[in-house]
Amino acid sequence: MSNAVVHADGHGHAHATHHSALQHHFDTMAQQKEAAVVGMWVFLVTEILFFGGLFAAYMVYRIWYFDAFAEASRSLSLFWGGLNTAVLIGSSLTMAMAVRSAQTNKRTATVNWLVLTMILGAVFLGVKVIEYADKFEHHHVPGYNFQWASHEAPAAGAPSTLLGAGEHAPATEGAAAAEGHRELSLNADQLQLTTQIYFSLYFTMTGLHALHMIVGIGIMLVITWMAWKGKFDDQYYTPVEMAGLYWHFVDIVWIFLFPLLYLVERHV
């Protein structure tokens, strides 16, 4: 590389006229976009490992305290959990549509899809608030007030009629019948100790996930404003796409959290 460095015109490669969003140290929009995509993915890789640490802790305690995890998981509302999963997947669809609209120069559609995504995100967070409030009420928040009473109602936040109306009615009824008759291998004291680990992980995992969603909505507010101002076109929509990647990632985390937290052992 060293010496016979021939100097060429730095702007020789960029034939086309410069896009206003091209930063000075990039040669082309393609280079700039590719850098952003790779950079975002590298960031998402750090996020994978970030949640990975939690999954590792979860895995260890699930091996140790499987019965407690199963028991505690049954106290979560499958209705709210399932609803939130659907809401979040829906928001992923609207997000993908927002990116697509930006790609195809549809300014109003972009803004609308982004707003819809934010609304769905807010719905998710609202449901989370309901679930958290329920946990507070039942003293299921780990700490000095943590109280695990065994044989309590399986899903305090979700009326069983709603469950019955849902798409999984037969299975749910079977489970409800089995509830209460189950012979526990753990006594109250042990459950008190080990379910607390479950709820510590539950709150850390869902809390961090919710935090990511709040950050995501914050980012999207900025992006929506930019879209409204017409900053994007089919040549430059990178911010929308980056926000989309982030949002989809948050969705993927939930795709794993849902079975790990809500479906530990439902079939008893």
Binding site: G53, G143, I197, S200, F203
Partner: peptide, 28 residues
């Protein structure tokens, strides 16, 4: 990121009284 999440777990354990690493609360 793994040290970051470890610090988060330590902080919630110390600050909020969650039980993750404390053997007195079933942790390892």
């Amino acid at each position: 990121p793994v040290i970051a999440i470890t610090i988060v777990m330590l902080a919630v354990e110390r600050g909020l009284g969650f039980g993750i690493f404390d053997p007195a609360r079933g942790g390892d």
